[in-house]
């Protein structure tokens, strides 16, 4: 591919724009929700896996899944949404695994947080950053 001066200029502009893309965060609301769910307890890592695409083609339908063996409940928060709560999965006695998948709405590029309440009363945390593409004819 041959780069013309214009192409190079455009790429430079694109790169500059990428660095200032809005990264949405609704910190206070998120902190309150986590405190309410955990009662302020410490959260471990490694026992919960939150799966989400690195880049979502459209923020209206983003596939995610959570998996934490031995969890009684998993809460998912979208920290950059106008209202951060997404869903809380409560697992019953006939749950075949403590995992679930769904499709969610993201108002823009942001961090997703999942917190699992384990059967022993401890908590696990995982997070993923999802870039939401906006613009072009698809946006």
């Amino acid at each position: 591919m041959d780069f013309t001066r214009r192409d190079t200029l455009a790429l430079g502009l694109g790169a500059a724009a990428m660095t200032v893309l809005p990264f949405r965060v609704n910190a206070a609301a998120t902190d309150d929700l986590i405190a309410e769910f955990t009662g302020g307890a410490e959260m471990g890592a490694g026992g919960l896996t939150l799966t989400a695409p690195e880049i979502a083609e459209n923020g209206n339908t983003v596939p995610i899944s959570v998996d934490a063996e031995g969890a009684t409940a998993i809460m998912v928060l979208a920290t950059g949404n106008p209202t951060p709560p997404v869903a809380t999965f409560n697992f019953g006695e006939l749950a075949g695994s403590q995992s679930a998948s769904t499709r969610i709405r993201l108002a823009g590029t942001q961090e997703l947080i999942a917190i699992a309440r384990m059967s022993d009363g401890s908590f696990q945390r995982d997070s993923k950053t999802v870039k939401v593409t906006i613009g072009g004819c698809g946006g």
Binding site: V86, A87, T88, G92, L94, A95, A100, R105
Partner: peptide, 26 residues
């Protein structure tokens, strides 16, 4: 399943149109 709970999901407005869930049951 037969009156015993498999999963109970609290859903918020961030769940997409035409809500979809996938999960396991014993």
């Amino acid at each position: 399943y037969n009156g015993q709970m498999v999963i109970d999901v609290t859903m918020e407005p961030a769940i997409s149109t035409n809500p979809y869930f996938e999960f396991d049951a014993t």
